[in-house]
Write a protein that binds this DNA or RNA. Sequence first.
DNA 1: AATGAATGAGCCTTCATTCAT
DNA 2: CATGAATGAAGGCTCATTCAT
Lengths: 193, 193, 193, 193
Amino acid sequence: MYIQSITTMSKKEQIFDTMLKLIAENGIYYTPMSAVAEKGHVAVGTIYHYFKSKDELLNALYLNVQRDLAEVLLNSVSDGVDIKESFKNMWVNLYRYYIDKSDAFMFIQRITPSNLISNEVKEECKLIYMPIVDFFYKAIMEEVFVNMNIQMMTEMFFASVSSVAQLQFLGGLEITEDLLNDAANAQLKAFVR
Amino acid sequence: MYIQSITTMSKKEQIFDTMLKLIAENGIYYTPMSAVAEKGHVAVGTIYHYFKSKDELLNALYLNVQRDLAEVLLNSVSDGVDIKESFKNMWVNLYRYYIDKSDAFMFIQRITPSNLISNEVKEECKLIYMPIVDFFYKAIMEEVFVNMNIQMMTEMFFASVSSVAQLQFLGGLEITEDLLNDAANAQLKAFVR
Amino acid sequence: MYIQSITTMSKKEQIFDTMLKLIAENGIYYTPMSAVAEKGHVAVGTIYHYFKSKDELLNALYLNVQRDLAEVLLNSVSDGVDIKESFKNMWVNLYRYYIDKSDAFMFIQRITPSNLISNEVKEECKLIYMPIVDFFYKAIMEEVFVNMNIQMMTEMFFASVSSVAQLQFLGGLEITEDLLNDAANAQLKAFVR
Amino acid sequence: MYIQSITTMSKKEQIFDTMLKLIAENGIYYTPMSAVAEKGHVAVGTIYHYFKSKDELLNALYLNVQRDLAEVLLNSVSDGVDIKESFKNMWVNLYRYYIDKSDAFMFIQRITPSNLISNEVKEECKLIYMPIVDFFYKAIMEEVFVNMNIQMMTEMFFASVSSVAQLQFLGGLEITEDLLNDAANAQLKAFVR
DNA sequence: AATGAATGAGCCTTCATTCAT
DNA sequence: CATGAATGAAGGCTCATTCAT
């Protein structure tokens, strides 16, 4: 089963990668399954062997990307390190991930305002992001951050990173290290006591 | 002819309103022209009499909404009033507009990450938002705000409002007046010296 | 009525001319009534004031052109002149008409194989071409032409002129005076005893 | 795979046959793809699986028919046989093909004056008809035919056959064997020295 | 007589999905 | 597991025609 899983993963990975890339380029509705098949060097039928529908594929892909994002954030904090420092790490690392994996960023940007993500997947995402929520919780408990609704904080946090990444991609603004620091600092200031 | 002009406006308005509502409900790609026609009580051909294509209609609608948004922001600041106060007004008023005109909010959320808005319209939007840019410029000049890239500031500003509105709409979080104040204050803190 | 007829003719003429030109350029089915209206500087409703339908307009236009063609042919023969000479005049003058009025030629080429011309108009055309049939009849009676079915002769006559005109227009062959003479002579030889 | 290839051919053939028949009956623009699908017992999507567009289908069909025509002509001449005899064979055989395969005839009549045939296909047709051009070339070299532009001769040849076939189909003239001979002889006379 | 806004049937085409191999 | 031919519902758009002014 391990061997099989490898092979399976590889086909699935191929499909995931291709769809991510195509959606980043053209958008969800200009990415037909046939194109994913062609560019991914698999048959349409093969995609439907692994995923029940386009929706399901999109949801699976979304979950995949969210797991990556959460991992990036989690790797940015460590118990010993200063909370403010950790926050800025999170901000900057998430930003860098968005830039490095621009396909993933564009995909998330595009799928989020759609109705396509199921409630099940949304719930699963909440679980995945638990540790991040925990981080904010601790920051408040330790009286580093103001006592604000955590859900709101995390949303604002994500929104700030995304907005700067968007600027870099579409806004025609070259985001230098200085600008990056400014943005991260601003967002930190928004939350500290 | 004056009467006719009124009627004409009303037809276009009818189309705009219907499309806005349907996109808010179902998304751009689940809003076929035929549905706009049906729900808007006009013939498909009539829509194409006023707009060359679905794309053009979307762009026109986008511009309409952006003008409304800019007006809301502009009405939130007045020369005599304290900059910090004005900023919070802008934040809260924009938020309230999003909540009141949730269709407009959803529409903007959905069309922004798409490729559908033409560069011409984007340029026109920049002009529309000039006064807002000016506001941030003055805030920096008067040393109320930190010296940050203004484009980045405005993006972060919009992102913060949107993220909280999103929470209200999809996140299942009831945004009370207190939460609202927290968010607006946080974003203000992000920018003040 | 004469004055009125002039005005009327002028509008009708405008419509005729525009439609002829547009069909020559783009073909019947790529010539919408709206285009005829726009390029002809009349309102769509105006066209429908003069013609019951697109079909009727096409039929009227067809009849117009056929009348012109018949006149050209008729003007090519005169009682005293030698039959062979007259035939060659007809051939060459028809060809020149096709070249000069290429729009009319293209229109005829395009509408003939369609089903759009009504039987009434076809019958009327037969009447118009009576004198030409007469010419062939006399040529046979006077034993200049072979005794062939006259309808067949006229069809072959028209076909030969059209085919050479077509060559000039689409075949990329420059039809010189010599080539023209060769063709006319050949077709004459086909019919003489 | 051999079997499959047969099946595939049969699907394409089905589409070709149906479209030919429908265009012969109703004309190109009154032959919607949906009708081809329905009458051809295939799904619309299937047509688009084999042909990129209606245009491409028309071009492929045109090429098919032209190949048939060229073959008919080629089979009408053999090296040993008298040139005049061969010419008359070509004329009569082409005529009979038009009568037998009236759908093909009508299709060609209708598509030729349109702009729908691409230059590539036109070029390919020229290659296909090379042997026929050769025949006329030899006829001139051997001083059986007059020294006329060959392109013009072939056009006039085709035009004469078509015009007589047209008469039979639409002109209401019953073309007897005698009439046929008259026409073929006349066209021969047009070209011989 | 003249206008052109309004209509909606119908066209070409796409694409998610199925299924026989 | 993998393939890709086949399906047909549905979408964007056109255009002949009508009608109120």
